[in-house]
């Protein structure tokens, strides 16, 4: 990660205001106004939490150790919450429990101050059958949390436009024309308006992910979950997707992001946490500080895996060289 990259990301974030004021501001409006229903104001400091997780425990049937152990955090409205951690730390599982794709065995998940999921030790004892999802949330509740997956999961039997308009028409019972209009605005904002009639298999990975983001946004979710959305992309496509997410952050969309892109995490996060073996080992409201001067040894260790350095002059190579000389 070079300074140059980092600066570009910062710059990208600042320059997001250059997006056409027409499309963006209007389309984002429902997002801003959607959450006025909560009078409780749980955070206490005047900032309302969109998502709260309390003592969440997730354990797979037959496993000795929970995948997620006593996780608690809150995400205030309009903030970007980034989850970092090594593979297998439970990052994706955390997002999946919040989206309702996996039952939890302890704790609570609250959306807008209302409990949407409570831990139940008897749930998830049996694996879900076949490919089907075991979740039981109401369809309305599901539309309030948007999620974008790592795999390109567009529906291959629908065109780009139909992928985006399907849920608003079928689930939210919005009119086809209105959904179509908004879908076109969203696609235009991610630079894909001209691809509206394409089939998913005609798109690149980066394009598919941008469509997937539109497909989630059109439902006006209160929070968006991004699960390593660039992990399966070629490097040159990563940027076009991350740029879109940066712009959404600037427009005040609340989101929770799991990523391996450190420069991106540093540039976008309002709040950053490190997850390791199912527990939160470090939390920080100061991303800059987290990256330069982490509080815990575990975080230091984790961050060091992203830098590369050759030991010139004093390593094993040097010794071998000297040994060679000795033999002559």
């Amino acid at each position: 990660m070079t300074d140059g990259q980092e600066n570009r990301l910062e710059a990208g974030r600042e320059s997001a205001g250059t997006l056409g004021p027409t499309g963006s501001a209007r389309s984002m409006e429902p997002l801003r106004s959607s959450g006025t229903t909560d009078p409780e104001g749980r955070t206490g400091v005047g900032q309302r939490s969109v998502l709260e997780v309390e003592h969440l425990v997730k354990q797979y049937p037959g496993a000795d150790v929970p995948v997620l152990n006593d996780i608690s955090f809150r995400i205030p409205k309009g903030k970007v919450f980034v989850v970092l951690g090594p593979s297998g730390s439970g990052k994706s599982t955390l997002l999946r429990t919040i989206a309702g794709l996996e039952p939890i065995q302890g704790g609570r998940i609250l959306l807008d101050g209302r409990t949407v999921e409570s831990g139940d030790a008897s749930k998830g004892v049996r694996a879900p059958r076949g490919n089907r999802v075991s979740g039981t949330r109401s369809t309305d509740l599901r539309t309030r949390i948007g999620m974008v997956f790592q795999s390109y999961d567009l529906f291959p039997n629908k065109t780009v436009l139909d992928n985006v308009t399907m849920a608003p028409v079928l689930v939210q019972k919005r009119s086809r024309d209105e959904a179509r209009k908004e879908a076109l605005e969203l696609l235009d904002r991610v630079g894909l308006a001209d691809r509206k009639d394409a089939w998913p298999n005609e798109l690149s990975g980066g394009q598919r992910q941008r469509v997937a983001i539109c497909r989630a946004l059109i439902l006006h979710p209160e929070i968006m979950l991004f699960d390593e959305v660039t992990a399966a992309l070629d490097p040159e496509m990563v940027r076009e997707v991350l740029q879109v997410i940066l712009e959404l952050a600037d427009q005040g969309l609340t989101m929770m992001i799991v990523t391996h892109e450190m420069a991106f995490a540093r540039g976008i996060a309002d709040h950053i946490v490190l997850l390791d073996r199912g527990s939160l080992v470090e939390e920080s409201d100061d991303p800059e500080r987290f990256f330069t001067d982490p509080a815990t040894e575990r975080a230091r260790q984790f961050l060091s895996t992203f830098t590369y350095e050759r030991r010139r002059g004093d390593g094993v190579g040097e010794q071998a060289h000297q040994a060679g000389q000795g033999n002559v």
Binding site: N131, V133, T139, I145, L154
Partner: peptide, 26 residues
């Protein structure tokens, strides 16, 4: 693939809509 069911789930489609519109055509 399972991800098709999951995508439909998080978009709020019910199980009949998922079957009829997503799974069956494929």
């Amino acid at each position: 693939p399972r991800s098709q069911y999951e995508s439909a789930y998080v978009l709020g489609l019910d199980s009949w809509q998922t079957f009829r519109r997503i799974i069956l055509p494929q």
